[in-house]
Write a protein that binds this DNA or RNA. Structure first.
Lengths: 266, 266
DNA sequence: TGCGCGATTTGCGTCAGGACAACGTTCTGG
DNA sequence: CCAGAACGTTGTCCTGACGCAAATCGCGCA
């Protein structure tokens, strides 16, 4: 609900185009240096000159923690690549319940609604920590992809792997107990945003029990209970909006189905 | 497990190329006439000549009911477009449980694993009724998309809308009761494969309670109970591997959350 | 340093829905 | 026409997870 204080991509662009006294940086500073994106998967296969051409239309925008990059239902006027930070992508059901769809990590393309023939963003993206993203107007997408087919191919792969993830999640929700789903969710988070510390792997951004509940289709109460039990067994280490996996291997075994949670039997 | 008796796409192609006494049809018959695919969304934007070029590499294959088009885990050596019939796409969990991922309707592209950078099919596709599909070797995909960028764009939209559907399903499973999920599943099926008959809308292919259970993450027992209750209330009409929606509107209301199932309270 | 709010923990009651079991019904093949 | 199998229906029991509610903790801010 805290509507972002950050300007949207198009507002930036409009300001750039219309402001009569164009400042030095705005007129001549390349929006982004290609070194920061040269090895992103999305741009694999593009030469330096081509990269510059693509980046010429981009703007770099900073999103403070808890600000929204875009809102569910808003007109999809831009697409993005995350450079730094982490975003939480969430959907709200007609009944008002929120669901965390996924987290975006640096290097990922997101908000490509226009490429999927959507006129509006299907979800809301919120900065979980201070973040920086590149941003292009949606109108640039057809032009860029027709000129650089590898962009479309790479985007297709990205969307495809996202589809795989989402289907995996459907399967988890169909076939697994809550405890296994939570384990899977944490492992996935650690995998894509884990930071190795002495006592294990820490998830690199603030995440509440509520967030985990919204990722796994359960309630914060249940998540809290599960994490408490795991903490007693030395599997994880909790804290305010903080989770450390102390024994990812054992957690994985638990996620896979064996290793009963509490039961004495077996 | 009934491994299809149908030849795979590549076996067909190999047979075509290597069989010494090439028969008349095999050597000269165009694999498919463009009239049968001219108005498929996938090929929107291609001229007749281009269409012919794309179709030149395709083969048309018939899949009898219950035969597999491809198996989960098999090498992804082809991609397909369904011309006629209906396919059930299912995944098997490591624990052996099966999940129905979706149904494929005529006109849809499927099995594009290669485009998503997968070497193996992530799911199994089985003909729910006798079906016919066009089939291209996976190797043709990069060539075709680089020559006809609209193909990639269209595929991206297809995969994107599939992603939307899957996410919608995740949200349903997170936030809805079993009964609502079953209602949603039936409405979706009716929507994409419904046939209007006197008493309502019939789902156009054989579908068992087990199948519905695998779509909604529940058990066939629960599905059976729910359908029985609905039948008593005149919402649906059952039968062996057959479901007719007699009152889609009321079913929709039920799926949306209001209209309690049984409760007497108000 | 003390206050206040949001995050977290935890106990308890309840119930939807899964497990088990038995039976009825409709196809299929000989 | 009959046997057998696959599909579907129903009843009973039981458990895991949700809802409610209250206590507690920890961080940020003044």
């Amino acid at each position: 609900m805290a509507s972002g204080s950050a300007r949207s991509c198009l507002e930036e662009a409009a300001a750039l185009g219309s402001a009569p006294p164009v400042s030095y940086e705005e007129s001549t500073m390349p929006p982004v240096d290609r070194s920061v994106v040269a090895d992103l998967a999305l741009f694999a296969g593009l030469g330096p000159a081509e990269l510059d051409e693509v980046l010429r239309e981009a703007r770099s925008i900073r999103y403070p923690k808890d600000s929204a990059v875009f809102h569910q239902g808003a007109e999809a006027d831009a697409f993005f690549v995350l450079l730094h930070g982490h975003l939480r992508v969430e959907k709200t059901t007609p009944q008002g319940q929120q669901i965390v769809v996924r987290y975006v990590s640096p290097g990922e393309i997101f908000g490509v609604a226009q490429a999927l023939a959507l006129k509006h963003y299907p979800a809301t993206a919120v900065a979980a920590v201070d973040s920086i993203a590149l941003c292009w107007p949606s109108a640039a997408w057809p032009r860029l992809t027709s000129k650089f087919p590898s962009l479309a191919a790479n985007a297709l792969q990205t969307v495809g792997s996202r589809l795989q993830d989402t289907q995996a999640r459907v399967i988890e929700m169909s076939s697994e107990q809550v405890e296994q789903r939570v384990a899977h969710a944490l492992l996935r988070l650690a995998n894509q945003a884990g930071r190795k510390i002495e006592t294990g792997v820490e998830i690199d951004f603030p995440i509440s029990r509520q967030d985990v509940a919204e990722m796994t289709g359960t309630t914060l109460h249940t998540v809290s209970r599960i994490l408490s039990a795991w903490e007693q067994r030395g599997l994880v280490e909790g804290g305010r909006q903080r989770i450390v996996l102390r024994d990812p291997h054992k957690l994985f075994a638990l996620a896979e189905g064996r290793v009963p949670s509490e039961r004495s039997g077996g």
